[in-house]
Nucleic acid binder design. Sequence first.
DNA 1: AAAATTATTCTGACCGGTCAAATAAATTGT
DNA 2: ACAATTTATTTGACCGGTCAGAATAATTTT
Lengths: 200, 200
Amino acid sequence: MKQKAELRRQQIIKAAFEAVADKGYEAVTLQDIAEYADVSKGVSNYYFKNKEDVLAHLLIQITERIYEKEKTAVEMESSAQAMLHAYIDSVFVGPLENERFFKVYLDFLAQATRNERYREINARFYSNCASICTLILNRGLDEGTYTVTDVEEASKTIRSLIDGFMIQWLMTGDRDQHSTYKKLSLSAITSYLTSRTASQ
Amino acid sequence: MKQKAELRRQQIIKAAFEAVADKGYEAVTLQDIAEYADVSKGVSNYYFKNKEDVLAHLLIQITERIYEKEKTAVEMESSAQAMLHAYIDSVFVGPLENERFFKVYLDFLAQATRNERYREINARFYSNCASICTLILNRGLDEGTYTVTDVEEASKTIRSLIDGFMIQWLMTGDRDQHSTYKKLSLSAITSYLTSRTASQ
DNA sequence: AAAATTATTCTGACCGGTCAAATAAATTGT
DNA sequence: ACAATTTATTTGACCGGTCAGAATAATTTT
């Protein structure tokens, strides 16, 4: 019976994701979420405190899932470059998934500038991403493949490149450019990590 | 009288900016905008078609202003590295201005994923930014300072780093980190542009 | 005074959250 | 085994509040 409640919560969160992906964070109503979940309006209020609570749980869920997928993908590999490749592969999964996820994620980022709770959840996500980058970077430094000096700085740079390119891709209406931007970010990151210039 | 009308429009757009910065794109109401502009509610409807029209003009205005400021700042300089420095300086102006501008801009980015008009305005902005980057890059290539091969690719990378770092800075609640992220993006861009590795 | 501009009021729609009643599921007593 | 009772879940109507946009009124300008 505890499981069933958990199942319902999952069902609502999933529906919330679809609804937000379609309509946007602010535009979505509890009614929408209920319809997407094929339940009646009251259900969300039964399982969650309020609308924000539903959406906060959605943000937690998507960021944690992404993190775990990326982490296991990277841990499967042994060389730094293979790890980086695996990382980029699991970030740039495909046009459809990326569009859906990033639309929603961007909505939350915009909200996070005015919502402490969202900012905290995102900070945890960033920190998780950094831990993956650290994994890759340390391997690369051991191998001698990477020339970067500051691991923390480098992982922030990687995150910047990924977020930045993903946004640029989203903003070109052309979904076919997905592989282009994927290659672009891989090459930019590699180029940055193997740069022979003093960081001065 | 034409000028006066234009003045009123400016007043409303300015008010819309402040209102959106405080409350967020979707949360803001025409009432809010009117209050920030110290006029009554009907005024916006007189000068603009509707709410979206006000906000679209706001987006056009802020992106064009930013572009012109950045462009003139870059054109003042002669060496590539000085131009890049001037560019970064006019992007990372200061904590207060950046927070206000980027909060609003991020709101529009999130909206743009579902609004063709905003996407187009932003595409024009991106293209303007790219033209600034091209200016810098060509100078750097002439000088022999930069080793990058593909100018278009490089300008996308620069944009990624700036957007990415700006978002990261916004997401740390700590406004004092502004100069850190400014340095970070300058060093990452420089490092990328002067990298000695084959782009393969 | 006529036209242009600004301020106020009205309207119909919709939202989030509440809640009483309906239904389903689980538990207990016999 | 089964009926009675309790508990958990679901429903949909409802309410107070708010919004965008329209209509209207007041004011200023020409």
